[in-house]
C-alpha cells in the first residue's frame, strides 16, 4: 500500500482538539477513496513516504512555514480544509513559494477533488 506522510502546521491561537478531529475525518475519507495509508508524522519523517504533504491547519501558520522552509522539498503540496483561515494561510504560503521560483500547489476542496489530485501526484512520482 502506498504511504502518504503529513506534517501539520498551525497557530496556537486555535483549538487543537477541533483541528485533530477534522484531520482524522479528512484522512479517513481520503484513505477510503484512494486506498493509500495516511500518517501524521513529525517533520523528520515527512519525506520517508511515497508522497509528502504539509497540512496547513489554521491561519497564522505562515510564519512557522518560514522556519521549516530550508528543509522542505519540492513540489511543496499544501493540504487545507477551509476553517480557521487555513486556506488563507495556504494562499500566502504558496504565493511566497512561487515568488522564490519553487513549485507547489494547494490541495483543497471536496474530498473527491483532493483524493483525485493526490492520486495524480502519486502517478506523476511513479513516472
Amino acid at each position: 500500500m502506498k504511504v502518504v506522510h503529513i506534517y501539520s502546521i498551525y497557530s496556537t491561537l486555535h483549538n487543537k482538539e477541533f483541528m485533530d478531529s477534522n484531520t482524522s475525518e479528512l484522512l479517513n475519507s481520503l484513505k477510503t477513496i484512494t486506498n493509500y495509508e495516511y500518517k501524521v508524522v513529525p517533520f523528520n519523517e515527512l519525506y520517508q513516504a511515497d508522497l509528502s504533504l504539509i497540512l496547513v491547519s489554521t491561519g497564522g501558520s505562515e510564519a512557522y512555514f518560514k522556519e521549516i522552509e530550508s528543509k522542505v522539498m519540492e513540489p511543496i503540496i499544501l493540504l487545507t480544509f477551509g476553517n480557521d483561515n487555513s486556506l488563507a494561510a495556504s494562499l500566502e504560503i504558496l504565493a511566497y513559494i512561487q515568488r522564490k521560483n519553487m513549485k507547489g500547489e494547494i490541495l483543497h476542496g471536496s474530498k473527491e477533488y483532493i483524493a483525485k489530485r493526490i492520486m495524480n501526484l502519486m502517478e506523476d512520482k511513479d513516472d
Partner: peptide, 8 residues
Amino acid sequence: NPSRIYTD
C-alpha cells in the same frame, strides 16, 4: 480572506 473553494 478566501476561506473555502468549491472547485466543482
